Simulated assay, not measured.
Amino acid sequence: MSPNTLPELPRLMIDEAVKSALLEDWGRAGDVTSQATLPSTATARAVIAARKPGVLAGAGCAESAFRQTDTRLQFDLARNDGDRLAPGDIVAHIEGPARALLAAERVALNFLGHLSGIATATSLFADQIAHTKADIVCTRKTTPGLRAFEKYAVKCGGGANHRFGLDDAVLIKDNHIAVAGGVTNAIEAAKAFAGHLVKIEVEVDTLEQLEEALAAAPDVVMLDNMPPERLEKAVGIANGKVLLEASGGIELDTVRAVAESGVDLISSGWITHSAPVLDLGLDIELS
Rank of each mutant, 00 (worst) to 15 (best):
G165L: 06
G165F: 06
A160R: 12
A169P: 06
I118S: 04
V107R: 06
F149C: 06
F149P: 07
R163W: 13
L171A: 03
A103Y: 12
G181W: 02
D135L: 13
T120W: 09
A148D: 13
L146V: 02
A134Q: 13
A180K: 08
E105A: 06
A119F: 05
T184K: 15
V179L: 12
S116L: 10
T139A: 05
T122Q: 03
L124N: 11
G158P: 05
G158F: 08
L166F: 08
G157Q: 12
C156Q: 04
H114I: 00
A108F: 12
T139G: 07
H162F: 04
G145T: 05
D167Y: 15
V183L: 11
A134V: 06
T120Y: 06
S123I: 03
V183D: 11
G145N: 07
A119I: 02
R147N: 09
A103P: 09
L146M: 14
I118C: 05
K151G: 00
T139E: 08
G159L: 01
G165M: 11
V137A: 04
T120L: 10
Q128D: 03
C138V: 03
F111Y: 13
R140K: 11
V137I: 15
V179K: 09
L146S: 02
H114G: 00
P144K: 15
R106F: 01
F111W: 11
Q128P: 00
K151Q: 08
D168M: 05
G165S: 15
A130D: 14
R106S: 01
K141V: 09
Q128K: 15
D174T: 07
I136M: 05
H176I: 09
L124K: 14
K133L: 06
H131C: 04
A108I: 11
V183Q: 13
G117R: 12
L101W: 04
K155P: 00
L115V: 11
R106T: 05
I129N: 08
D168Q: 07
R147K: 06
T142Y: 14
A153M: 14
S123H: 15
A126G: 03
Y152G: 10
L112R: 01
I177K: 14
A148E: 12
K151P: 01
A126R: 13
A126E: 12
I118G: 02
Y152I: 10
K173W: 12
I129V: 15
E105D: 09
G159M: 01
T139H: 06
G158M: 03
V137L: 06
F125T: 04
K141S: 10
A134I: 08
L101H: 03
A108G: 14
K151D: 01
A160G: 02
D174Y: 04
A180M: 08
E105L: 04
A134M: 10
G145Q: 07
G158V: 05
R106D: 00
H131W: 06
A121K: 13
G181R: 02
A104N: 05
C138K: 00
A178V: 01
E105Q: 15
N161F: 09
R140C: 09
A130Q: 11
S123N: 13
A108W: 10
